[in-house]
Design a binder for these strands. Structure first.
Lengths: 183, 183
DNA sequence: CGCTCGCTTGATCTCGGTCAATGCGTGTGG
DNA sequence: CCACACGCATTGACCGAGATCAAGCGAGCG
């Protein structure tokens, strides 16, 4: 049914019938993904590890049995699904209303924030995904992603070498991505 | 917790802290919305009726009690939530990868399809929402929405007067919106 | 009657997509 | 060990879809 990530990173994406991929999210340690399969017990989404990754499979039928005896578990899972919905809707806002710079600033801040919660450095990290994945996720081309990274670097917001990123000016970045707080 | 729509139509949207609105969906008779509130028992989303609308409120605590005694109900609701996630991810694809014409074609077809399921005419209907709402939902400006409607009409795909729409060439429209089948 | 609101249409501008070239690290085979 | 290819990232030049600005129009309403 779903999977909890121990270490590493995952990209989730779905392919439409015309063959194009849409990255729907990046998942990092401590996060859970794979809700969509519940709808019809057939995943429309696929997931690939972006680096060496350890996951914990949670089969749906096991979960059903468990939650019958533990109602609190059921509520917890519904909350996690609802959080997924909120995340998606945040992404929808990002794609519908925000510029390339705003989208990438938001992504960087989201990653920073999520790493911070896991007690990892929120200002120095390695992006697990490629520029192409970022572009796909944010509805941009590789070239635009690359240009924005360069521009951010020129402005002194970040320092980055390929996937290695250091956030230098967090306030300015979050100023760019005036989005609601991460769920 | 959530609401089932008897008649009329609803637009759901959320406002970010900078005050901008993002329409996250249109809901029609027989559909259910309001999942997001489960995450923290506080809705980030708001809903307004677009026309005279009758809804049925489903409070979360009632639901919890019910589903404890009826496990099948719980599964059913999780499936509905998962469908919501799938819908959102379809919208994400639409916003990230598709042109203005493709987005609007998809919306028209989605409405057509959903009306058809309720045994209403899938080719002649009245759009319950304004051009501005459509634009907000699809990440477009009012002007672009209006222009695309005009272009579709010029191409003989649809006939429309303000909110009254008739689909003349369904194959061509679905050709435009080469998207995966609605969940 | 005059006002506002929603919709349409036109003119212009701009952000980001497209096309193309280059660099760079890595793996592979001679 | 070197040559080459391949994937990924960067950068530049150009172009176009859609945003922005502006004007006009019909319908509803005080």
């Amino acid at each position: 049914m779903s999977q909890a990530i121990y270490s590493g990173a995952i990209k989730a994406y779905c392919v439409s019938d015309d063959g194009t991929e849409q990255v729907t999210g990046f998942y990092m340690p401590g996060e859970i993904f794979g809700w969509d399969g519940i709808a019809d017990n057939r995943h429309k989404n696929t997931a690939v590890a972006l680096e060496t990754t350890a996951v914990c499979e949670i089969p749906f039928n096991k979960f059903e049995a468990l939650s019958a005896s533990m109602p609190i578990l059921q509520k917890h899972f519904m909350q996690l699904m609802a959080r997924e919905i909120n995340n998606d809707q945040q992404l929808i806002t990002l794609l519908g209303k925000n510029s390339a710079e705003e989208r990438i600033a938001s992504l960087l801040l989201s990653i920073s924030d999520r790493l911070g919660r896991r007690k990892l450095s929120p200002t120095r990290f390695r992006l697990p995904m490629s520029r192409a994945d970022i572009g796909n996720y944010l509805g941009l081309t590789v070239e635009t992603v690359s240009r924005v990274f360069s521009r951010f670097q020129a402005s002194g917001y970040i320092k980055c070498d390929k996937k290695e990123v250091e956030i230098l000016n967090l306030p300015n970045l979050s100023n760019l991505s005036h989005q609601c707080a991460e769920a």
